[in-house]
Design a protein around this nucleic acid. Structure first.
Length: 395
DNA sequence: AGATGCGGGGCGA
DNA sequence: TCGCCCCGCATCT
């Protein structure tokens, strides 16, 4: 009969009404839609004024995850969790790695950890790091709201990020673990001293530097000019006492007075600038021990990202620059081969921003990854061990 | 150690 | 009053 066609029409209308249903609510509404029939896949990079309804089973939604560095903000409403964006940590030298990447580090969420982090130096050029504050919501940081209602988790984002994307949480964690490994082999480390002694012997070769986990600005769609220069005027005060060496002269201050500023640095200064209220950290900062810029990461051998689940990860490919994606038609049970050659020495995908759009679920910690999200995965430790031995080959 | 969540409280519009 | 922020604390990984 015509039932099929009718159904199709009805389905379309239904879908349209669902769309309306999906966007007609506000996170502050007393009552949120309860007859939601279509839930969204978790969005890793929510941007602009978007709303999503996730399943309460969604682990990432449960944890209020975001690949933006979002910190908890007290809105004095225990029913609605509010988070605001911390921006991105950039190199004040605007340096580029050998493979043309910019430094977009993920600000630590913890205040103290962030202070510590800002006292450190650019892992690429040893220059000072600067926090690019997010001011994408009327001069204030972009805010994300989470609200659990019954079987759903409602998400709403307010504001459009006016800065590049930082590393993902996983990349930042991986980088930290690498830095820890480096610390273990720091100049003061007895083991490294011994290695150095051996290296100082005729014929010895220097050890390799640890990899950098950097974002590649053009690896995924960025807001206009996000891959461009960083406006000093939009930055936090420079922190730390880094050498500020600029192994890449082009990047060292060329942006001053040159041409167009990136859109995210052209935010008109408001009467009230949140940045001004933030503290200035002590200038008395110990010299850093960042690696030499001459040993930048190599894209094919040293960018390492912990492997997450295969094609079943809850982070779906983003459809556009805003990070919005459409719910897929199926759960995608197949494992997609990586779109890049496997890195040397192991199955770990690289941490390059080039693969942000394929970001998958974090490795299960504790109970995470059980149940509906179950699937094969390789533990972070596997990758870390693997890369550790790649970085520090035992001789 | 760091991420995360909660709550108290200050400040400015 | 509202929105934003800082801070301390507790819990978890």
């Amino acid at each position: 009969m015509l039932k099929g066609a009718d159904d199709a029409v009805l389905e379309q209308e239904d879908s349209a009404s669902r769309r309306g249903e999906m966007t007609s609510w506000d996170i502050n509404d007393i009552k949120l839609p309860q007859d939601v029939r279509q839930i969204d896949w978790f969005q890793e990079w929510p941007d602009s004024y978007v709303k999503h309804i996730y399943s309460s089973e969604d682990k990432n939604a449960q944890r209020h995850h975001s690949s933006w560095a979002m910190r908890n903000t007290n809105n004095h409403n225990s029913r609605i969790l509010k988070k605001s964006c911390l921006g991105v940590l950039v190199c004040s030298n605007d340096c580029l790695t050998l493979d043309g990447r910019k430094i977009y580090l993920r600000p630590a969420i913890c205040d103290k950890a962030r202070q510590k982090q800002q006292r450190k130096c650019c892992p690429n050029c040893n220059g000072p790091l600067q926090l690019l504050s997010c001011r994408g919501h009327g001069g204030y940081p972009v805010t994300n709201f989470w609200r659990h209602e019954g079987k759903f988790i409602f998400f709403q984002s307010k504001g459009a990020h006016d800065h590049p994307r930082p590393e993902t949480k996983l990349e930042a964690e991986a980088r930290r673990s690498i830095q820890k490994a480096q610390t273990a082999f720091s100049p003061s480390s007895p083991r490294l001293k011994r290695i150095r002694e051996v290296e100082s012997l005729p014929g010895a070769t220097p050890t390799r530097e640890a990899p950098l986990l950097l974002s590649k600005p053009d690896a995924y769609p960025q807001p206009v000019n996000f891959g461009g220069h960083v406006s000093k005027s939009s930055r936090e005060p420079m922190l730390g006492s880094c050498s500020g060496r600029t192994p890449f002269p082009r990047a060292a201050g060329e942006d001053e007075g040159s041409g167009e500023l990136p859109t995210w640095s052209r935010i008109p200064s408001l009467g009230r600038t949140p940045i001004a209220r933030r503290p200035c950290w002590s200038p008395a900062i110990p010299p850093c021990s960042a690696p030499s810029p001459r040993h930048c990461a190599h894209p094919s051998s040293q960018h390492v990202l912990p492997v997450m689940k295969g094609g079943q990860g809850p982070f779906r490919p983003n459809a556009g620059p805003s990070g919005d994606g459409s719910p897929p038609a199926s759960s995608g049970s197949c494992l997609h081969p990586p779109p890049y050659p496997a890195p040397q020495g192991g199955p770990c995908p690289m941490a390059s921003g080039a693969h942000h759009h394929r970001q998958l679920l974090a490795p299960p910690r504790g109970k995470q990854g059980d149940g509906g999200e179950g699937g094969r995965h390789m533990g972070l430790s596997y990758c870390r061990d693997d890369m550790f031995f790649n970085l520090y080959p035992l001789r």
